Simulated assay, not measured.
Amino acid sequence: METRVGFIGLGIMGRPMAANLQRAGIPLSVWNRSPGGAAALASLGAVVHPSPTAVFEASDVVLLMLAHETAVDEVLQRGSDAFSRMVSGRTVVHLGTTSPGFSAALARDVEAAGGDYVEAPVSGSRVPAERAELVGLVAGRPEVVDRVAPLLAPMCREVVRCGEVPAGTGTKLAVNLYLCTMVAGLAEAFHLADRLDLDLEVFRHALDSGPMASAVSTVKLAKLVARDFEAQAAVRDVHTNTRLIADAAGAVGAHSPVLEATRELFRETEAAGLGALDMAAVVTALEQRDARTDGTSRRHGSPGTRHTPSRSDRG
């Protein structure tokens, strides 16, 4: 019998991920807290359900792409009898980024209720999600991972098996430490080029042509030069990620001074009301520090001049 698949959480990342599953010929049952994401999937043929409970009732495997731990607990009604009824006999696939401790505890609760659990946090932002070029960092019991892996293939260019829960989440946080600090460093380099009154297109060409260039740096530098802060990975979500990374590092006594400096920049950016913009907008924190110090300002207008996106409907 064909595996029945549900998908809950159709925000910046979840919507293109679910769309790729649907296009791959995997019929989906879906739910989202706001209607826009669900409507987009309905147009592709997915069945929209009125509640998470209804999605679970219609599914054997349910994929969750939710914004944070609280959202996961609320959607699953964790700690209630309803939670046990929802997950019993089903496989829960947690695609989002949470703390390792949260994922491990959720795995225990799902399995205690008679369900199976896999964590598969994905590395990548909106554009890789649209292109089915994410990297899935999967952990769980091998026989359960074997069942889930074919469902990840339409969304991911590679699926990396990380071991037992919560090794997938731990791997994601370690990867994200590099990502967050790299983008903050790129923004700082761009900011210096701007303050030196360099031709920013020439600076972009120099960096893109050199050994430090990467898929991330090329995309983010283009956004910085264009002042295009339409969200691929939103500042507020990156700030949350830096907190999760810092907490994980602190729990094992791993010093992370570069992360701490980066975390403060993202905190300042979100506090300035720019949390819905792309993580490249972290450059504005540096610009505001300059303005407070010596009254200078950057050359290129206000944040979001070219794109001022509305708050995305989040899963």
Results as ranks from 00 to 15, higher is better:
176 N>Q: 12
174 A>H: 03
195 R>A: 09
247 D>F: 02
221 L>I: 05
178 Y>R: 09
213 A>K: 11
180 C>S: 12
181 T>K: 05
242 T>R: 00
228 D>H: 14
244 L>W: 00
199 D>I: 06
201 E>S: 12
232 Q>L: 13
245 I>K: 00
180 C>F: 14
172 K>Y: 10
205 H>N: 12
206 A>N: 13
232 Q>W: 08
210 G>T: 05
206 A>V: 14
222 A>F: 03
214 S>T: 08
169 T>N: 07
169 T>S: 05
221 L>G: 04
175 V>F: 14
178 Y>E: 07
235 V>S: 01
171 T>G: 05
189 A>M: 06
238 V>D: 01
174 A>Y: 01
234 A>R: 13
203 F>L: 04
211 P>G: 13
240 T>P: 11
175 V>L: 10
215 A>K: 11
186 L>E: 02
191 H>N: 10
167 A>F: 12
229 F>T: 07
198 L>P: 02
216 V>C: 00
224 L>W: 01
187 A>Q: 12
225 V>T: 00
231 A>N: 06
198 L>W: 10
225 V>E: 06
223 K>D: 09
168 G>Y: 08
246 A>T: 08
229 F>I: 09
207 L>V: 14
219 V>C: 06
231 A>V: 03
199 D>Q: 10
215 A>M: 13
235 V>A: 09
227 R>C: 13
227 R>G: 08
195 R>G: 13
216 V>W: 10
240 T>E: 11
187 A>C: 14
239 H>V: 06
194 D>F: 11
192 L>K: 10
193 A>H: 02
232 Q>T: 10
221 L>Q: 04
217 S>T: 15
239 H>D: 11
206 A>F: 15
184 A>L: 12
202 V>W: 06
233 A>F: 15
178 Y>F: 15
235 V>Q: 05
190 F>S: 07
215 A>F: 13
178 Y>M: 12
196 L>V: 06
220 K>W: 05
221 L>D: 02
201 E>H: 15
227 R>S: 12
191 H>C: 03
204 R>G: 15
191 H>K: 03
205 H>V: 04
189 A>R: 04
168 G>D: 05
183 V>Y: 00
188 E>P: 02
168 G>Q: 03
209 S>F: 13
234 A>H: 07
207 L>M: 06
179 L>D: 01
219 V>A: 15
200 L>C: 04
231 A>G: 02
174 A>D: 06
243 R>T: 10
231 A>R: 04
220 K>E: 03
